[in-house]
Amino acid sequence: MKDKIRDILSRLGKLPVAVDSLADDSDLYTAGLSSFASVQLMLGLEDGFDIEFPDNLLNRRSFASIDAIAATVEQIIATRKVA
C-alpha cells in the first residue's frame, strides 16, 4: 500500500524534494506539501484506492505523513468491509 501511496504522492504532491528521500514518518507539510497539492493528493488517493474520504478525516493530520495516509486509507477500507 505504501508503494502505491508513494507513487500517487510523487505524481500529485508537487513536493520540492524526491519522494524516495522521505521516510514513511516524514512530515509531508514540512517537506513542502501545499494545501492545493494536498487536495490533489486526496483526489488521487480516492481514485487509486477506490475510496471516499469522509469529512471527519479531511484534516491535516490524516495526510501528514505516508504512515498517516496509510492508516487513514486502511481505516476507510476496514469500515467498508464491516458495513
Partner: peptide
Amino acid sequence: GNTSSMLLVHRQD
C-alpha cells in the same frame, strides 16, 4: 480559489 479546491473533496453539509 481555495474554497473551490477544497470542494473537490469536501462534501457540503
